[in-house]
Amino acid sequence: PGLLEPTSCLVRVPKSASTLGIAIEGGANTRQPLPRIVTIQRGGSAHNCGQLKVGQVILEVNGVSLRGREHREAARLIAEAFKTKEKDYIDFLVTEFNVSL
């Protein structure tokens, strides 16, 4: 009891700007096993949405887990999720805590 349970939350980011406007670092086989948001750029979709925060760790993108994926693979998934015309939003499952595998 009293241990903080790592809570995750689903953030829906509408594609309201021409860019997503975040930067991530980390991925499998690095000190940061899951991609962490290190920058949120003013005027980007993420900034407009207002629910993503620097420091949050991304667990899933549109329901696809990033667990075990190296940085470039995770980055490709996020880029494709923003590029696709199928959805006008991206769903990010994020957590505040550094989730170890």
Binding site: L20, R31, T39, R72, A75, I78, A79
Partner: peptide, 13 residues
């Protein structure tokens, strides 16, 4: 396996 050299990779979107 030990962290590889590209561990500080950052990607902007």
């Amino acid at each position: 396996s030990p962290p590889k050299e590209y561990e500080d990779e950052v990607t902007f979107f």
